[in-house]
């Protein structure tokens, strides 16, 4: 009797241990929820991307487990990405990649390099409109360049950060036209846009998604776009290139995992992303809703993009004397 009871107890312990250690001991990836770290607060571009991904992946049943979005904001992404960095080898952490992923470490504000993480998928790219408000006397880019030539630093350009895509685009235009703007940082494109609409600054940069409604309502005019070709949704907005200024700048969005993740786990994730990218739902709810260009890059191509973009930022920041 007594031995019997011990045997049951022992069995229970063993079963319990297996149940507990099961996920670690060779169950197929993924066997539990994956934490999708957004290194920014709720409501930002990265947050919207992550939540759209989590939604489409769940609705299209592309992964057997949910992606649980967690916002770990702070230090222009430094906090969230450092957190994922510390999960080396653990495939249960996914994070978003966006502009700050390159700029924050470049500014010496984060203990990682963009190439430290495991690339999973390049998702979309975004471009920038150079806009003035409807009441502005500047009708074309040429008007602005001429005024800026005569009086340097007269034309104010609103931007979201001191070292960001808007700053780089501004610098590219300054260099291409041989002029000097008065660049003013507003901490976000929302405040920059209100200041533009209120007539407190002359120009600013907007993503097509941010600008669409304003342009449609006739509140702002887009003078040029930083893409290589005209955007389908805005056939009337010329590129800088056609206007004779070598200003091409794109903003990439994608996802990455912690460093040194097992290759089979990367494959599972990247397969899911490749399939997601091709669903109607994804194209409609994220790409079209935000007027982006879908790129659908797999791990290898995305890794190369990350490196290439990294080099572009280094070059531009050196030129701007933001870094040495």
């Amino acid at each position: 009797m007594r031995t019997h009871r011990y045997a049951v107890l022992a069995l229970a312990v063993v079963v319990g241990l297996i149940g507990w250690a099961g996920p670690v001991l060779g169950q197929a990836f993924p066997s539990r929820a994956i934490e999708f770290v957004v290194p920014f607060g709720a409501g930002g571009g990265s947050d919207i991307l992550a939540r759209a991904i989590a939604k489409v992946i769940a609705e299209e049943k592309l992964l057997p487990v949910p992606l649980v979005v967690s916002n770990r904001a702070g230090g222009s992404g430094a906090v969230g990405w450092s957190y994922v960095l510390s999960k080396k080898g653990d495939p249960y952490f996914l994070t978003t990649v966006s502009g700050s992923y390159w700029t924050t470490p470049l500014l010496g504000l984060a203990p990682f390099k963009p190439t430290d993480f495991t690339p999973v998928a390049g998702i979309a790219l975004d471009t920038f409109f150079f806009v003035v408000r409807a009441e502005s006397t500047y009708r074309t880019l040429r008007d602005i360049v001429e005024v800026a030539r005569k009086s340097p630093e007269l034309i104010t350009v609103g931007g979201s950060a001191a070292a960001s895509d808007d700053r780089v685009s501004t610098a590219l235009l300054e260099r291409a036209a041989g002029i000097k703007f008065n660049y003013i940082v507003f901490g976000g494109s929302g405040p920059a846009l209100t200041n533009l609409l209120g007539g407190h600054i002359s120009t600013t940069w907007l993503n097509p998604g941010e600008g669409l409604e304003q342009i449609r309502a006739g509140k702002v005019r887009a003078l040029a776009v930083t893409s290589t070709e005209r955007l389908k949704a805005f056939p009337n907005v010329p590129t800088f290139k056609e206007l004779g200024y070598d200003v091409v700048w794109e903003q990439y969005r994608g996802v990455a995992m912690a460093p040194a993740v097992p290759p089979d786990a990367v494959k599972v994730m990247s397969d899911a992303f490749q399939r997601m990218c091709r669903t109607q739902r994804w194209q409609k709810e994220y790409i079209e809703a935000n007027l982006l260009v879908s790129i659908c890059q797999g791990p290898e191509a995305w890794g190369k993009t990350i490196e290439a973009v990294s080099e572009r930022y280094v070059r531009m920041f050196r030129e701007l004397a933001i870094i040495k």
Partner: peptide, 10 residues
Amino acid sequence: LIFGLRPGPL
């Protein structure tokens, strides 16, 4: 935005 509704001046 996810609903395809984009608030703007209009």
